[in-house]
Design a binder for these strands. Structure first.
Lengths: 219, 219
DNA sequence: AATCCATACCGTGTTTTCACCTTTTTAAAA
DNA sequence: TTTTAAAAAGGTGAAAACACGGTATGGATT
């Protein structure tokens, strides 16, 4: 069985060389070293593709996100493992969305690097506990705040929340008034109260607030 | 150190009893067995709370989703591990969103059950490879339609998409015109064109469309 | 050169939205 | 019963949004 080939994309020369050495020690073949995403893509010629790319995120010219995305659609067989300095939640999610199969920190120990590579080769992905934890956190906290919390946080009452929901539609205030069995003037009052409470100054502001806070999702 | 107490909620008597036995064999104390979510909540009295609840999802009267959600806000200290027959992606996500700290299948082996319990006790969560895989899949595929698809589907051009993004703010059209270096009249034109293309009839409609189609999320 | 087409732009008029300030109604509290 | 507070409703005027029917300009196309 032939050796697993790996490509590197990282703008820090020393880190890149060190990493290449380490990978060779681990028994892999480093077939390509690029200093940014654009160079990597340009030097991949379609044949002799690496099995895996270790991709830095922050790189000049073209960063890891874009490079991964393009790589994924151009050469779907090549699997990307993101390589980053920080365990930033957004970075992780974003790289995964771009198609990365794994995400490891630059200060991981060689054992983890090898584990990641092997997992990606055999199972198709590698996700450390750190990544999983962040993922769960995102799933849970990206969850829009409930109506209850909106009520409490912003001091909105049932009627105002009902109005807010209706404001997130193409109805005019007059039509909303009808639907709520109130005078248009009363609706004016609700609107002004919400403008004040939510610190917005237009109906679009109301809609954006409602969306951001998950006021809509109830029905 | 006192024994870890665990509560069970499952409508299948046999499975429940078997599970209780197994847990006792593993060294845990089973303090409560309920046949559905409502019964569980009703029999938790605030003191003598279990450290962990093994929660079935499909139960009569009140299912695992609602029970977990209520439990979470009523007794945040109690940690829920979901227990399910199927590795259904939506079920997993939904239970995690409801506040479950772990998700294991009913046909897992006792070792995994114990691992899950210990992980939840010590780290606060347990997520098997199966769960992580599903999560990644969701993150990648639940992805909102891209700008590209909006462009294609609705026939919007770059400038229109740029306008659409700005329309999702509290700026007036006049201000948007300034920011885009165009006359307010031109903006009128963009608006009218979008109203037509997107089949909406107000600025709120534009905002709702943009949100629904993920036009915003780019920056 | 004439035509087409897309983009940018203009005029006018109506409706809706927003701001500010006042009054009536209702229901609970003193 | 009077007081008080909140909800509902109103008047007015200015700004913004919307509708409709046009014009000007600069490429491509023929």
């Amino acid at each position: 069985m032939s050796q697993t080939t790996i490509a590197l994309a990282d703008d820090h020369v020393l880190l890149r060389s060190g990493l290449a050495n380490l990978l060779r020690d681990l028994g892999y073949e480093v077939s390509l070293e690029a200093s940014n995403g654009a160079e990597l893509l340009q030097r991949l010629d379609g044949k002799n593709l690496p099995a895996i790319v270790l991709m830095d995120i922050n790189m000049p010219v073209m960063d890891g996100y874009d490079a991964t995305q393009i790589l994924k659609q151009q050469f779907p067989a090549v699997r990307v493992i993101a390589l980053s300095m920080y365990d930033d939640e957004n970075a992780i999610i974003r790289m995964l969305r771009c198609g990365a199969r794994g995400y490891i920190l630059k200060d991981s120990d060689p054992g983890e690097l090898k584990a990641a590579i092997q997992a990606v080769l055999t199972k198709g992905f590698y996700h450390s506990e750190m990544v999983t934890g962040k993922l769960i956190h995102t799933i849970n906290h990206l969850d829009a705040p409930s109506n209850a919390s909106v009520r409490e946080l912003m001091g909105l009452n049932d009627r105002e929340i009902e109005f807010l929901k209706l404001a997130c539609s193409e109805m005019t205030y007059r039509e909303i008034a009808e639907k709520m069995n109130l005078s248009p003037r009363t609706i004016d009052g609700y609107r002004d109260a919400l403008f004040d409470k939510l610190q917005v100054k237009s109906r679009v502001g109301l809609v954006l607030f409602a969306i951001k806070n998950g006021v809509m999702r109830s029905e």
